[in-house]
Design a protein around this nucleic acid. Structure first.
Lengths: 195, 195
DNA sequence: CGTCTATTTGAATGTACTCAAAAGCGGTGG
DNA sequence: CCACCGCTTTTGAGTACATTCAAATAGACG
């Protein structure tokens, strides 16, 4: 149940058995069906959410009603609108389960409590936020300077096997191209020697 | 000397006269000539830097030696590689003065000291980091879903008048297009009724 | 099995890039 | 103070990357 989360924690902080017990006592498991929402535009995201199984996308809708995928999260990742979580402002994003999924959740107030009891946890989350920051910053550069094929290959590396779990049009949206075009890219990659 | 900074602070926290005096006592002014560097790739960015006058760009070089502008900062903004600052890891970026500039700086250790003496300052910087985060997140979506013309118009709104202070090729790099193309865009905008 | 949605394919178009060369502009030294 | 040099911007022509629209095909699910 908690293996993945403990692995993630272990990468950044080391916790005693007691601390682990305390931490896990705060977590509420939840399962979601395919296409269920964890968060909708306009809502405030007050739950920190760790993906134990399954896959989520976070996307916004532009004025033409087109979806733009800002984040993809699979097992072992935290998912959600960090900004809404920290500021308690309404989110501009939807967070949707792409497949049957299972998450562990904690309310913001409980997280604050936990910070006091286990200060190391604050460090852990600070590092996660820093990483999220970097990841967006890098994506700004790559989305502007790298052609779509390479961005797709990069996606394959970052999320191995995921291209078979989520629909093509979702990947296309994440990469910033139209589905028709990604379809053609895949075809080319399949013919011409890969990579 | 401190007007701009105090304005920026006032937007998020309210400080007593005493606190302001303490804060300003930590700040070291520095002037830079056009094309001087505040930070180079590989260096650790241990100074928080507020722009009092002038303009800076933060950019990285890709494997082909092409520059990609990640951030532009004018008077009233903080500039620099936040990630390197917080992690004390070497930066991937250059921070360069685009024109004769004047900044106020504080070392990381001194900032930590200040946090203890004026906890409100921690709040102020946390908000700034959140805003930087949002700004990159929005740029990811806009760079992928918005044509270059609109991104340019957006740039003009965000940085009024700046198009006359920094070279065209720098703006092009910030927008993710080639200079030749931005030149043509400008021409079109000048002819056809604007906006 | 049928329906609804997702993917593929085709043709035409538009957006942005490359390469090359000319024009403009700013600073520096004579 | 002017002439020259180097760098930035503009212009032109050809090309590549990615989109639109429309229609056909394939898959998924009840």
């Amino acid at each position: 149940m908690y293996t993945l989360l403990l692995d993630s924690l272990a990468k950044h902080v080391s916790l005693t058995e007691q601390e682990i017990n305390l931490l896990t006592s705060y977590l509420i498991p939840k399962t979601l069906k395919k296409k269920e929402y964890l968060l909708r535009e306009g809502e405030i995201h007050h739950k920190a959410t760790f993906v134990n199984q399954g896959c989520f996308i976070m996307y916004s809708l532009d004025k033409n009603g087109k979806a733009h995928v800002a984040q993809i999260a699979v097992e072992g990742w935290w998912v959600g609108d960090i900004y809404s979580f920290f500021t308690l402002k309404p989110s501009d994003y939807f967070v949707e389960a792409v497949e049957k999924s299972e998450v562990l959740q904690m309310n913001k107030e409980e997280l604050e409590e936990l910070y006091i009891k286990i200060p190391k946890m604050e460090r852990y989350f600070r590092i996660l936020v820093q990483n999220a920051y970097i990841s967006y910053r890098n994506r700004v550069v790559s989305s502007m300077s790298t052609p779509a094929v390479e961005r797709y290959l990069q996606f394959l590396k970052t999320y191995p096997g995921l291209e078979q779990r989520i629909p093509l049009y979702t990947i296309a949206s994440y990469l910033g191209v139209r589905p028709e075009f990604l379809s053609r890219l895949r075809k080319k990659l399949a013919k011409g020697s890969i990579s």
